[in-house]
Design a protein around this nucleic acid. Sequence first.
DNA 1: ACCTGAACACCGTTCAAGT
DNA 2: ACCTGAACACCGTTCAAGT
Lengths: 241, 241
Amino acid sequence: MAELGVEARRREILTAALALADERGLDALSMRAVAARVGVTPMALYPYVGNKDALLDGLVDLMLAELLPAAGTPGAWDVRLRAIAHAGRALAHRHPAAYPLLLSRPAVTPDAVRLVDALYRALLDAGVPAAQVPRLERLVSTYVLGYAIGEITGRFAPADPRRHARATAAGGAAPAHQELSGVLAQPPDWDTEFTAGLDDLLHVITSHAHAHATRGVPAEQAAAARPATTRDRPIRGSASR
Amino acid sequence: MAELGVEARRREILTAALALADERGLDALSMRAVAARVGVTPMALYPYVGNKDALLDGLVDLMLAELLPAAGTPGAWDVRLRAIAHAGRALAHRHPAAYPLLLSRPAVTPDAVRLVDALYRALLDAGVPAAQVPRLERLVSTYVLGYAIGEITGRFAPADPRRHARATAAGGAAPAHQELSGVLAQPPDWDTEFTAGLDDLLHVITSHAHAHATRGVPAEQAAAARPATTRDRPIRGSASR
DNA sequence: ACCTGAACACCGTTCAAGT
DNA sequence: ACCTGAACACCGTTCAAGT
C-alpha cells in the first residue's frame, strides 16, 4: 500500500513535469517549478525522482509509455511498422520540448525494450535475416527520431522566405540552391515527406528480405500458414503464447 | 582593423567554449567557465557572443566550418556524398558534447547553406529529379546526424551485457529479442553499420534517379559529356563557372 | 513516513562604473 | 573601446529539523 503510494506519487510528479515542459519548455523545467506545480517544496521531490537527471529519464519513460500502445497494432508487418513510426512522430508533436530526450538517453527501460521488440518482430516478419534486424531497427528508429526532432526544433523549418533569400544571396556560393529555386520556393508538406521517407525505408527493408519470406501477417499466423520447412531458423518459445 | 579584431576575439571565445565542451561536457559550459578560460570576466564575453544561446549557435557555426572542407571533395556524386557523410560522423566523435546542437538549431548560416548545397549538387548529379532533391537531402542529413548522436549519447550503446540480460529477463514480453539472442549477443561494429545504412540510402537515391541520368561526375563534366537534349530542365548559371 | 527551511555553491544577465 | 564589480533573480542539492 505504501509502496503503491510511492509509485503513484512518482507518476504524479513526472506527469506534472512533462506538462510543464509541454507548456513552458525545457528551460523552464526546474525542480523548483515542478515542486510548485505539485504543491510541495523542491526537496520533497527527491525521494521520488532521485535528482534532476533521473527526472528527465522519467520523462523518457512516460513518453515511451504513451508510445507503447502503437506496438500492439495488428496487421501485416509493414502496417505495424508504419503505425509505430507515425505514432513516434505524433509523440514529438505532443511533447516537442521533451521529445529530444529520447535521442540522447539509452533506451533500456522495459517499455523501450518492448517497443524495440515490436520493431524486431515486424522486421523478422518482413523476412529480414536475423543478422540485419538490429541494424535496420536502428535505421528506422533513427529516422523517426531524427526526422521528428528536425521538424520540431526547426532544423528543416526555414520555409520562411529568409532562408531562400539568404541562399540566393550567397549567389555563386550556392549554385545548386539556385538550380533548385523552383522547388525550394514552395514549402514542403512535412506529413507527406515523412511518409515518403518511411516508404523509402520500407523498400530498403524488403530489399534485404529473403526472397521467399514475404509474409505480411503476425508470426503466429504466418507460422501456421507456412510449411515448417520454410523456417530459416528454429523459433524459440513465444510462438504459441 | 578594429572590426577584424572583434571577429578574431569572437572566434577565440568560441574556440575556447568548444574546447571546454569537448573536455568537460555541455553542463560545464557556463559563461563564467568560458570567461575564465579566456582569462576575462564573464561580462566581457557579451559584446562578442551576445548571450549564452547565441554562443551555442556560434559553436554550431564552428563545427560546420570544420565540416565544410568535406563539401569540396572531388569525384563522382556518390564519392562526394559518402565523404560528407563520413566527415559528419567523424565530427561527432571529435565534439561529442556539442554535436547534438546541430540537430536542434536551424541550419541557416552561410556555411550550412554551402554544405547543403554540396549535398544538393551530389543528388542532382545522381540524376534525382529536382522535386525530390530537398527531401532526400533531409533524409541523408537526418540519418548522419541521428546515427552519430545515437552513437555518442549511448542510445545504441547497450552493447554491455546488461541490456541483453534485461531484455531476456523480460521474458515473454520480448520474444523477438529472444529469437535474436544469437545476433544480439555480439556487439555491432558501428563503423560498418554506419556505412551499411549509408549504402542503403544510396540505393534509395539511385532508385529515385532518372533512368538515363547515371552520371557520376561533377555537373560541368557531365553536361559536357551528354547531349544537351537529355537535360530535363534548363540549368541556370553556375554550370560554366 | 513524509515534508520543510535554511544554507551552499553555483547560474545568466543587468547596470553603473572604471581606464 | 574594452573591461570590471557588485548585484539580482534564479539554479540543483545538502543537511538538520520538524510532525
